[in-house]
Design a protein around this nucleic acid. Structure first.
Lengths: 220, 220, 220, 220
DNA sequence: GATGAATGAGTTTTCATTCAT
DNA sequence: GATGAATGAAAACTCATTCAT
């Protein structure tokens, strides 16, 4: 992705950095930011404590780097999923599938990701919160774009603002994923993306012009 | 629930306890569990630190008590909303409205509630996590019951499992509420519950039997 | 000196504070600021480390308090010595004697005092340096006042600026005291203050008007 | 002093060593021993940290070498000043002038020199303290020799022990120099050495035989 | 029963020194 | 011989908890 010519030294440093981040990820995702000490990270990553401080200016910096890199990666993958080929429905299906796959493969990261994008994170850590949320908002806009485009070409019936639909779909997926995270046996993430999609689609599609759902509500 | 005859002493203790919890709530919701010290809670509640330890066995116990009581209260109120009078649609509407109202009136608690029920809470605090989640699951079952009942009496079309629908509706509300929490101006929580409800209902209602949404997907 | 009504508690706190400062003084004077750890001070004063931090906001604060209090005391005592009764000569004699006595009785403090007022202290410690030097300058002005007064009433011949004479006398005493500090046997601080005073006085006194010292230099 | 035939290699090493010492001097005099890290010295001198350790066994050794060399140089120059041509008065004048010139040209070194020779240096650094003080004592003896010689040839009146006079003159100069160091504008080091010298001489000279200063004191 | 002073284990971070390249 | 990445002991400081008054 970047210039390929990294010296051996530089490549080694990258590897070490990744090992540190990996150890930190494990620990943070197991116990949360405040319950992990730098000594633990050093021990788990098998580096001396001082070496950690050569790579990161402090615990906060280490955590920020970790979160930033993971979030960036997730958003990249998800953005690719919804910006790829296919009509809007296919792209949403792909989004649901990819999101599930990413979760399955990155459980530890997910715990942190969720703590940052959902719930009430207390990251006083100047700026991180804002940064992540902005990146997330940016992604939601992309997702809203898919609905918008579906509206324009008549694939979707305009039952709500595209942004709301994006929020809805994303939070639906997250809800299923959190259930899965808690008890994978009891709450498997749907193999078929339509299980989730239909929750929104079963009335979203413009072909259902003959129905009178709205009227029903209006009468209330 | 308990015997009503509390001595003056006991009543005083209850008041003191509530004052401690109120001070703790303010602080925890402002700064998060780990960034609040027992001294701060003592200072804010105007009790001696030793007195705090007469009421709670430690910081963790205090936090647990706080979370438990708040969650219990929320679930109670929400359960009442969905178990009250009216058909299923009305009950869901009431749920959305009550949830909005409860949030508006309890912003500090909400931050903690969200941290516990959504996202990846790191509450290693033996059991709290489990306890809260169980209570939450219990509530989701109640909510699912509303859909179930709607299915049975033909008000809803069976577009998914009732539990999934409960999860979907709840996470939809949460998503809107988190948006509102972040920026109340930009993302007001809908006055009209149908704004949220329609996201699910526009195809969920059994009156739309004539439409061919499903077929469309099957053809894919 | 101050309002006498200190509660027992307050008196105890004062005692503890003094014990902490005493332990710190010993250690700082033995090994210097940077070679003493808070743990050592805690151990030597027989308090828990946390208790130290209840009395002083940090190591720097502890050191500053120590220096400030000692310096203030010294300057007070010395100022009293030169502002007491007697003609200028007597007052200077008393200054030399009192300075010797104070040194003898406060060897550990002296090491710190000297490090602060003489030599090149590297007290980056915002302000302390300045504060101490200002207090010292103030004292030198008092001492210069004695010479000034001696000039005015004709007791002293005006062989230099009064401030220079103050600096000269003070540095003379310090020099003798440092010698004594290094090797009390070999370099006892003079019992008779005139041993020091005569180094300046043997020509300073106005009664020596008949001599031609200056002329001698002019002819060179 | 040493054999003159240094190989190119050896000469290079000397140069490097001097560069290291120069960088260290700058830093130590700016911030004090404990506030300078070996990394800083390495960076400022543009050598690798490992290279520093090839030349000096450690930080302490580096500092000792620095102090030793600077002190040696100062004492050499000052000894030359007082051992040169001229009568005792001229030699003392030259001493005062040279001392002023050396200070002016070596402010950074001076800060360290003062920290070592005056005040209470905390150089636990085994031996350095003693070593420097011995060299200093040696110099004071040379200076005392000038007074001694002045006594012998009748140029000076024996108003005190020659060693005391040496201490007195040196501390007088130091006092003026410290004043100058603190505020060169307000306290310039005297251009005319007699400004300092007269503080001692105005009664020291044997030509003032007619005066009765001593008697005056005796009467007290 | 309430109080808050005292405690000390545990945290983050620095930096002199070593040694494989 | 020079290099600088890696090391880990040691420092300053915090805070949950105890217990004598």
């Amino acid at each position: 992705m970047e210039g390929r010519k990294l010296s051996r030294r530089q490549r080694e440093r990258q590897t070490q950095r990744q090992e540190m981040l990996a150890a930190a990820l494990e620990l943070f995702s197991e116990k949360g930011y405040h319950n992990v000490s730098m000594h633990e990270i050093a021990a788990r990553s098998e580096f001396a404590i001082g070496t950690l401080y050569k790579f990161f200016t402090g615990k906060e910096d280490l955590y920020k780097a970790l979160i930033r890199e993971k979030c960036e990666r997730f958003h990249q993958v998800l953005t690719e999923a919804i910006e790829g080929a296919g009509d809007e429905v296919e792209r949403l299906r792909r989004y649901i599938e990819v999101k599930g796959a990413v979760f399955r493969d990155n459980v530890p990261s997910i715990r942190l990701y969720l703590a940052e994008t959902r719930g009430a994170s207390f990251n006083i850590m100047a700026g991180l919160d804002r940064e992540i949320r902005e990146r997330y908002a940016q992604f939601l806009d992309s997702l809203a774009g898919v609905f918008e485009s579906g509206f324009r070409n008549g694939l979707f019936r305009p039952i709500g603002r595209s942004f709301h639909l994006a929020v809805a779909l994303d939070s639906l997926c997250n809800a299923f994923l959190v259930l899965w995270l808690e008890d994978p046996e009891k709450h498997p993430y749907p193999e078929d993306p339509d299980t989730i999609l239909n929750l929104l689609f079963e009335g979203l599609l413009s072909t259902s012009e003959g129905r009178g759902g709205d009227r029903r509500f209006e009468s209330h």
